[in-house]
């Protein structure tokens, strides 16, 4: 989608979050010198085109006591990967699930599902639940725990004019 300078200003003003007031888009509009209706319309179009996924809260697993997280990876038969990936993504303890290409030799896994728990044993128990759900369609699986954050930066807005 092509976004113009006004869209860009709206994104810049809201990517850190929305004001928690009854009419947040009116507050954003006022800050930018726009009409509320224009902000609503532009953001609705951005949502329609997939630029905005949703207006939502991002949970902090660490603050919720979910201090262990494991990236579970699964080798799923291609024919059922999409259907089973959706089933895994719908589990309440899975925060992200994606299909990705394999990297052979050595990496046969095509489904990645991030699992959170209070400790590693809880994460392992959840991995076992996924294994039951997937059954024989999952030919192999593994789990990778993160041990250190080496770098973390937020979304950087492209400077490119579109």
């Amino acid at each position: 989608m092509r976004i113009d300078e006004t869209d860009r200003r709206i994104i810049a003003a809201t990517q850190g979050g929305l004001p928690l007031v009854p009419r947040p888009f009116a507050a954003v509009a006022e800050e930018l010198g726009l009409e509320e209706a224009e902000v609503l319309e532009r953001m609705a179009v951005m949502q329609e085109r997939g630029v905005i996924r949703r207006i939502a809260g991002a949970p902090n697993h660490y603050a919720l006591g979910m201090t262990a997280n494991g990236m579970t990876v699964w080798d799923l038969e291609d024919a059922v990967a999409s259907e089973l990936g959706a089933a895994v993504g719908a589990l309440d303890f899975v925060s992200h699930a994606y299909l990705r290409p394999r990297a052979m030799p050595g990496w046969p896994y095509n489904l990645f599902a991030m699992v959170h728990g209070r400790d590693r044993s809880e994460v392992e128990a959840k991995r076992a639940r996924i294994a039951v759900l997937l059954g024989p369609a999952a030919r192999a699986n593994d789990i990778l725990y993160s041990t250190r954050i080496l770098k973390k930066t937020g979304l950087r807005l492209s400077r490119k004019e579109t």
Binding site: G17, M43, R54, L64
Partner: peptide
């Protein structure tokens, strides 16, 4: 609104607002 603000202040949520997909903007 007060409760969402408190969830944010206590870091139960890290932010509340639009989630942008940079890939959809050409990234």
């Amino acid at each position: 609104l007060e409760r969402i603000a408190r969830l944010r202040a206590e870091r139960v949520i890290t932010r509340f607002g639009p989630f942008y997909d940079a890939a959809a903007m050409g990234g």
